[in-house]
Amino acid sequence: MHLVLFFIFGGLCVAGALNLLFQRHPINAALSLIVVMSSLAVLYLLLGAEFLAAAQVIVYSGAIMVLFTFVIMLLNAGREDRTHGSKAAYLVGIPGAAALFATLVYIFLSYRTPLGDAGLGNYLVTTTDLSKVLFRDLLLPFEVTSVLILVAVLGAVVLARKEH
């Protein structure tokens, strides 16, 4: 059951990602991204991370992608023309991406045991477990991260107000 669901949603995720690249209209691309993010949420759920799955849908597919579509609608961005692509992308980009992919695959395959195994199964990380780690064991990094985000938000406000 888990494996079947994994293949369905993993396939959906890859298909959405490819569709995102091939679509020429921004709004279709944005919608494919929503599909990718929502199927990622299902994959998280299959790995037993229920809170992460819900947060993924609420924050990414909900809030952030609504902002994306909102901006696309507001700017009334039209269909984009297909170009022949830059030479740099062909010469450096594709070999670079292939090399990166090969390296990652090599690392994951050769260091399987030390990296650990996130198998599909019936175990569950409950929200209580997660909050114990976040608010007890890793309290300082967590708080520092939130301060960092606050600084970023304040910075965005300052930059946005400069025009007036």
Binding site: I34, E50, A54, V57, I58, S61, V66, T126
Partner: peptide
């Protein structure tokens, strides 16, 4: 489900589309 409330929020946030 354990995260019923969160799922309700998630469905609500998808409905905007």
């Amino acid at each position: 489900v354990n995260i019923g409330l969160l799922i309700l929020l998630a469905i609500g946030s998808i409905g905007v589309y």
